[in-house]
């Protein structure tokens, strides 16, 4: 079915002129929204959430995502946020990793062996993020923005957003800095402006039709830095969390509508 979706998209899109292509993609996204495989990812994520793993052979069901051990409803909408037990601001993936290494006592190496999946084999992190984020549907996005470390993360993320470096002298704003711009046919949202950041942040993590994969925000940032010709951001590093904090705080107030379905 995945193959069919990707093939079908190309078949409709290619022969048409630029404007039409965009409309077709939108129409197509609408069409598949009902039958989007997002639900399958949520179901598999639930199985993994409840599966005993690691040396302590326990599940993640007691994982505290910020609202108390095991509380999932609305937890994702409040991330990233400061966690006292780790004395650090954490996003969803970082917190899941924290629970894997503390509750389940898995080594960090084991738990991060495969954080980004592919078309044939999604990663545990991707499944789990689908399951957890889905339980914030309809809740207003409200990332932490009061603790000193949350404010620090926001400021760092903002500075990173406008920081020009790398092989091609780019900052995030090189591509996400002006309204109405595109790379090839792909629209580039101005993520520093609330009105554009809100609908984007409220639909991640997301299933990407173009490559038939479910993707996390950690992946999105990683892949933009690849295109910017930087070295690779370390998974769950403070730098990546700072950027996500900046985006999420900028997007605050939007009701969560994810996991989304993207181009």
């Amino acid at each position: 079915m995945k193959r069919f979706l990707a093939g079908c998209l190309l078949a409709v899109a290619l022969p048409l002129a630029a404007q039409d292509t965009r409309k077709e993609i939108q129409k197509y996204q609408q069409m598949i929204a009902d039958g989007s495989p997002v639900e399958l990812f949520e179901l598999e994520g639930e199985t993994l959430w409840k599966k005993p793993q690691g040396p302590s052979n326990v599940s993640l069901e007691k994982c505290d995502l910020g609202l108390g051990p095991g509380v999932l409803k609305g937890a994702y909408a409040r991330l990233p946020r400061y966690f006292k037990d780790a004395d650090r601001v954490m996003d969803l993936e970082t917190r899941l990793l924290h629970c894997m290494t503390t509750l389940q006592r898995r080594s960090r190496e084991d738990a991060t062996k495969r954080v980004f999946g592919n078309e044939n084999q999604p990663s545990e992190m991707e499944y789990l993020s689908a399951y957890v984020s889905a339980q914030s549907r309809g809740m207003k996005m409200a990332a932490g923005n009061s603790h000193a470390k949350e404010k620090e993360a926001f400021e760092l993320g903002k500075a990173m957003f406008f920081h020009r470096a790398g092989g091609w002298d780019m900052s995030c704003a090189s591509c996400h800095g002006e309204e109405g711009k595109r790379i090839r046919m792909q629209d580039l949202p101005v993520l520093s402006k609330p009105e554009f950041a809100r609908p984007i942040v409220a639909t991640w993590p997301a299933y990407r039709v173009s490559n038939s994969q479910f993707k996390t925000m950690q992946w999105r940032i990683n892949d933009c830095y690849r295109q910017m010709r930087y070295p690779e951001p370390k998974f769950a590093s403070d730098a990546t969390i700072a950027l996500t904090t900046y985006l999420a705080v900028t997007a605050a107030g939007e009701p969560y509508r994810g996991p989304g379905t993207k181009r």
């Binding site: 760092l156 990173m160 920081h163 470096a165 830095y225 930087y230 070295p231 690779e232 951001p233 370390k234 590093s237 403070d238 730098a239 990546t240 700072a242």
Partner: peptide, 9 residues
């Protein structure tokens, strides 16, 4: 921060 949190690849 970039020197600390990024890795060569």
């Amino acid at each position: 921060v970039l020197q600390r949190d990024f890795q060569p690849r």
